[in-house]
Amino acid sequence: MTDVSQTVAGEILSPATGGFSGRPHSHGAVPVPGDSRGERRRSFDLADFAVPGGREEEWRFTPLHRLRHLHEDDGPGEGTVEVVVDAAPEVRVETVGRGDARLGRGGAPSDRVAARAWNAFEKATILTVPSETVASRPTTVSVRGTSSDGAAFGHLQVDVQPFAQAVVVLDHSGSATYADNVEFVVGDGAALTVVCLDDWADDAVHVSQQSVRVGRDARFKSIAVTFGG
Rank of each mutant, 00 (worst) to 15 (best):
S5G: 08
S5Q: 08
I12Q: 03
L13N: 11
S14C: 06
S14H: 06
P15I: 03
P15V: 01
A16K: 15
G22Q: 10
H25P: 01
S26F: 08
H27K: 11
A29N: 08
V30C: 00
V32Q: 13
P33Q: 12
D35E: 15
S36L: 03
R37L: 10
G38D: 04
E39K: 07
R40V: 01
R41N: 04
S43E: 01
S43Q: 03
L46C: 05
F49T: 11
F49W: 08
A50Q: 08
A50I: 02
G54A: 10
E57S: 12
W59P: 04
R60Q: 13
F61H: 14
T62W: 06
T62Y: 02
T62C: 12
P63S: 10
L64T: 12
L64S: 13
R66A: 15
L67Y: 04
R68D: 08
D73H: 08
D74S: 14
G75M: 00
G75C: 06
G75D: 12
P76C: 11
T80A: 14
T80Q: 14
V81E: 06
V81P: 00
V83G: 03
V83P: 05
V85T: 04
V85E: 05
V85S: 02
D86P: 01
D86G: 01
A87I: 05
P89R: 10
P89I: 09
R92K: 10
V93N: 02
T95E: 14
T95G: 10
D100T: 01
D100V: 02
R102G: 09
L103S: 12
G104Q: 07
S110T: 12
S110L: 00
D111L: 06
R112K: 09
R112C: 04
R112E: 10
A114F: 04
A115P: 05
R116A: 05
A117D: 07
A124R: 09
T125D: 02
P130L: 05
S131T: 14
S131A: 15
S131H: 14
A135K: 06
A135D: 05
P138D: 07
T139P: 11
S147T: 15
G154L: 05
L156K: 01
P162S: 07
F163R: 14
Q165F: 10
V167H: 11
V168I: 14
V169C: 00
D171E: 06
S173C: 05
A176G: 00
T177S: 13
V185G: 03
V185S: 06
V185W: 09
V186E: 01
D188Y: 08
A190W: 08
L192N: 06
V195F: 03
C196M: 02
L197C: 00
D199A: 14
D199S: 11
A204H: 08
Q209V: 05
Q210I: 00
Q210F: 00
S211M: 04
V212A: 09
V214L: 13
R216W: 13
R216K: 13
D217E: 15
R219K: 09
F220R: 03
F220C: 09
I223K: 00
A224N: 04
A224V: 14
G229E: 12
